[in-house]
Design a protein around this nucleic acid. Structure first.
Length: 101
DNA sequence: CAGGGGGCTAAGG
DNA sequence: GCCTTAGCCCCCT
């Protein structure tokens, strides 16, 4: 029973279950998927997602409640745009609210 | 097989 | 607020 077969599937599935307008951290997502300690994998997987994916990758932020991308980078702006489009507010770089985390 | 790195995290200085 | 250390786990050289 190696658990490397589809830890990805578990993560992606968990990711897909995140409701509109909510956010959570990488670690939380991994844990919720039954894979504590896979925070890095979560990020790594997201990175390899196609740019046209349906998955809400933008709802995932780091434990500091910030977007894990260089500020001002395209990826950063892209994610921020999507989050604000869901009603998520920012205070500077930090994300407010979030019932998750 | 060893090394380095990544959308991470938590703890320290 | 910033940077470093250490732990975590998978993937590519």
């Amino acid at each position: 029973m190696t658990n490397t077969p589809d830890y990805k599937a578990a993560i992606l599935q968990q990711l897909a279950s995140i409701p509109f307008g909510k956010t959570c951290s990488y670690g939380y997502l991994a844990k919720a998927a039954g894979l504590p300690g896979y925070a890095r994998q979560v990020g790594n997987i997201m990175k390899s997602l196609p740019h046209d994916t349906q998955l809400p990758w933008h709802r995932i932020v780091n434990s500091q409640r910030k977007i894990s991308f260089p500020i001002g980078s395209e990826a950063y702006l892209e994610q921020r745009r999507r989050l604000e489009a869901e009603g998520i507010e920012f205070k500077g770089e930090k994300i407010l609210i979030t019932q998750f985390l």
